[in-house]
Design a protein around this nucleic acid. Structure first.
Lengths: 350, 350
DNA sequence: CACCTGATTGTTTGCGCTCACAACACAGGT
DNA sequence: ACCTGTGTTGTGAGCGCAAACAATCAGGTG
């Protein structure tokens, strides 16, 4: 088991393997790259030599000559939130099984300058494509300016503007949640939204508003949150003071959690007096007090689909006519969300 | 603002810059690498040419000759959990500001084979060092076998066995929590632990057990969880049935959340009848019902300190005597946790 | 038997860069 | 006039690999 090796300072190179196997370095290269036209016997000799020396090809040399880095970049802005960290994970898994390395660039701020820096950084590394865990509309717009320089896809929201991508149908999810609440008998539904300019937040709000409008319900002003439990709590305090509130749709689970807390503090019972519905289905949702009705997103699938799209672009036979990616295949993979019913929602009392 | 460039298929190389600036390629290289002994005027001519061509150095060529990849690897096992994703983020930030790229390898399973694959994968990429977001003792042991081949540090638990690293003092945190509960007047404290073999879980359990033993309290058997809210919920159901339980220390916040849920369902009031304390201080902790007393970990600092240690190893003047890293500088940076008091804990009734 | 075909292997070249070394100019001291 | 040192620039080589091309050998074909 212990790798027996002379441990001469220098690492073995292809020529060493070739010498040991009694072939030319080119034959070693052929074996390494699974080229045809190598005799079985020869191939095995080479493989044995590789094992014996614990040889590993030098990626720098390889990519210098092939002009391919086998690396994809991921730009992430809130890799600390539940959704983004899930997506990052599934992207990495998918990339690995496709034979790519993953290099990450996570940004603290979403200003144009940071975006540019991240793209530059990844380009310096010669990534072959970039997956963006997208969030704000303006950020995606900034990113889109670089789309000519390197293949790029967005992972997350359905409509990332200028970028192709894989996304959850936020609007459909929101609609399902709101329709469900109205069907239970609520006269209208309040909304705690995500931060302005966020794609997911906007789509969810649009879905909410759309259903209310379509059904001729009163559209109460939504309360603006920032995804955090704290902001949900603050919104919840305001909602709790309003006796007419019987149903609240929150743009994510963490805010819903804060709303639940605020309602509890104010003595308003959930679901008897107020129904609360979230979005995401974080693993804790089922264990909140009360367990949270929510809209589930399949983040893992999102990551996989997004990466598929990216690889299509990366491996596409380089642009037939001119600059690729311009208008051509502006595709999107849309993943359907699922409403998960739990105890935080029910019929209104009256 | 728009990058005016001829967009001839081929990217500019150093020779192009040299020609445009009227110098030799070597001078361009000197400018790029901030070498001294370049006249100001010359340097500026070169920089202008670089800007004009939007030239960017080819990293593959550079690392072929320098034998440095400027890349660090991160191995993560549960990049989806709160703590690990935080640490990943802070490691990335720190690496960037030190001028390194980050390549990640996140594993689904922690068996020896997966570990070996991850290390191989990163070595294939010629990373200069590896930061491990450590979790299980056996995994760290498996990793430690590779420590001779590439600098490696653990980020997370205090005592990662054979690896150096930066960690939170789990034991001290647990001790503080348990002592606090005992000081409130509880006769003993129950424990919902993390999964067996996990370093953090073991240290926290040891801290809990130590204080009870020291103070001559009854050491009740701990309940084994798996970090998830679900497992906390199941443990909570059992604890709720036991009337003698007045205080519970949970090895993380998500399990504490499950415990809270179970106690609530069973009609046992928190903190009046039972006090609950968690570990981590997730952002939601303050908004649970009731707000959770917990032990805060500074994950950001952990990541930073861990990376510092790694860079020390990476940039150390390559091994004076023989194989480095063996016994030499087995250092660890220990970060102190902090007990955060909230409403889920209080004096027992009697 | 000369000739072509395809499978297998080897030789040469160059990817873009940094390093070691050489070359040159210009200062001051002898 | 010479040498010596210092700052500045250029030249040549080679990092490890894959692509293009060349060479060799076997087995047909007419």
């Amino acid at each position: 088991m212990p790798t027996a090796k002379p441990a001469t300072g220098a690492l073995p190179v292809m020529a060493d393997v070739a010498r040991l196997a009694g072939v030319s370095h080119q034959t070693v290269s052929r074996v390494l790259n699974d080229r045809p036209n190598v005799r079985r016997e020869t191939r095995e000799k080479v493989l044995a030599a590789i094992r014996e020396l614990d040889y590993r090809p030098n990626t720098a040399a390889r990519s210098l000559v092939t002009r391919r880095s086998q690396t994809l970049g991921v730009i992430s802005f809130d890799s600390t939130l539940y959704g983004p960290s899930q997506m990052l994970y599934s992207i990495e898994q998918a990339a690995r099984s496709a034979g790519y390395f993953i290099s990450i660039a996570s940004l603290r701020y979403q200003d144009v300058r940071s975006v540019r820096e991240a793209v530059d950084r990844l380009r310096d590394q010669a990534v072959e494509g970039i997956a963006v865990i997208a969030s704000k509309a303006s950020t995606v717009a900034a990113l889109a300016q670089h789309v000519g320089t390197v293949p790029m896809v967005a992972v997350g929201p359905t409509d990332p503007g200028a970028l192709s991508g894989a996304g959850v149908d936020n609007q459909a999810g929101a609609e399902a949640a709101v329709r469900y609440l109205l069907d239970l008998g609520h006269r209208t539904v309040h909304h705690v939204s995500g931060p302005a300019d966020w794609l997911d937040a906007n789509a969810r709000e649009a879905g909410w508003r759309g259903v209310l409008t379509d059904q001729g319900r009163e559209v109460v002003p939504s309360l603006r949150g920032d995804w955090s439990a704290r902001s949900g709590y603050e919104a919840g305090q305001r909602l709790a003071r309003d006796e007419s509130v019987t149903a609240v749709f929150c743009a994510n689970d963490h805010m819903a959690l804060g709303v639940l807390r605020a309602l509890h503090e104010a003595g308003r019972r959930v679901p008897e007096e107020v129904s609360v519905v979230g979005f995401d289905d974080i693993p804790e949702a089922a264990y909140l007090t009360p367990p949270l009705t929510t809209v589930r997103q399949d983040f893992a699938q999102l990551g996989r689909r997004g990466l598929e799209l990216l690889l299509q672009r990366v491996e596409a036979p380089a642009a037939p006519g001119g600059r690729e990616a311009s208008g051509a295949g502006h595709r999107a993979a849309i993943v359907a969300p699922e409403l998960v019913l739990r105890a935080s929602s029910g019929r209104p009392r009256s």
